[in-house]
């Protein structure tokens, strides 16, 4: 078995490095530092180990071990459940909610990253069994793939973001020509005129129109802006809660929000980097509808 020690160690090292690469605590402050990171790094280590020892087990025809490893791998489904539950509990206390679709997307990402780690470790060990250097090369190639292929689409790939004018017609609030809501208090109208930023998001094609119509995607956009730029909001102030409304005729989305600083360029910079949720992606353009 000592023949396999080096390949397994290499598999674990590369697998664990893949998890480190994939774990970014960024402005979204999730996973939280350091407790959340420890949880995910430990999971990543276990995943890397499972992937790494699978190859020797197969080569030695130790089928009991292989079966058990397969069983262990399925346990990573729990990661998704764990993430979903904790994120949902946290979300109940957010001023601007993430929304369940966004949470589901994050939970999926966490689960799939562990499988990526397992895969990296498995392939690295397989290469390393043949030659030490092949293992190193294989590991590095996989790390590069993991690093550059992991990210999904962001909003600027499917839509254009432009500034919308906040204006009132009587008590009715508009962003450009899209109706947002009715605001009864003169006081609130003044706050909104002073502090609110209006944004018009114009999808580039039919797929984008359907994707952006999804409420989960729109909530994720609001949550991103609120997390990064802060918001002029407190609990019990429903009049100031950020909103999105859709122009039903052409699919444009109007966003109304009160960031801490009224600066459209910051809002645009954040908005363009909002990830497109897996659950929001629709492709009606590819479908056959008799046209």
């Amino acid at each position: 078995m000592s023949d396999y020690l080096l390949p397994v160690v290499m598999g674990v090292v590369f697998g664990f490095s893949a998890r480190l690469l994939l774990l970014r605590t960024d402005f979204r402050q999730y996973p939280t530092y350091p407790t959340g990171q420890i949880i995910h790094l430990s999971f990543g280590f276990i995943a890397a180990f499972i992937g790494a020892v699978a190859t020797p087990a197969v080569l030695e025809s130790d089928w009991t071990a292989v079966t058990f490893l397969g069983l262990a791998a399925t346990q990573f489904r729990e990661v998704r459940k764990m993430e979903r539950e904790s994120l949902q509990n946290i979300d109940a206390f957010e001023l601007v909610k993430r929304g369940i679709p966004f949470i589901e997307g994050m939970a999926q990402a966490f689960e799939s990253r562990n499988y990526l780690v397992m895969f990296t470790a498995l392939i690295t060990t397989l290469c390393a069994v043949y030659s030490f250097w092949l293992g190193i090369i294989g590991g590095i190639v996989l790390l590069l793939i993991v690093k550059f292929r992991k990210s999904g689409k962001v909003l600027q790939e499917i839509a254009d973001v432009s500034e919308g004018e906040i204006r009132f017609e009587g008590a009715t609030l508009f962003v450009d020509d899209i109706l947002i809501k009715n605001v009864g208090l003169a006081d609130t109208r003044k706050i909104i005129t002073d502090k609110a930023v209006g944004v018009i998001v114009t999808p580039r094609n039919q797929n984008g129109i359907v994707t952006l119509s999804y409420l989960g995607q729109r909530q994720a956009m609001l949550h991103h802006i609120a997390t990064v730029l802060g918001s002029y909001l407190d609990s019990g102030e429903p009049a100031l809660v950020p909103m999105t409304k859709r122009d039903m005729a052409d699919g444009r989305i109007a966003l109304f929000m009160l960031p801490s600083e009224k600066d459209f360029h910051q809002v645009r910079a954040v908005l363009e980097q909002v990830p497109i949720l897996d659950s929001a992606i629709r492709m009606p353009k590819e479908a056959h509808k008799g046209k």
């Binding site: 009587g170 008590a171 809501k181 605001v183 009864g184 429903p238 009049a239």
Partner: peptide
Amino acid sequence: VLDATSHE
């Protein structure tokens, strides 16, 4: 008081 919002 009511944590609500006014409409005209």
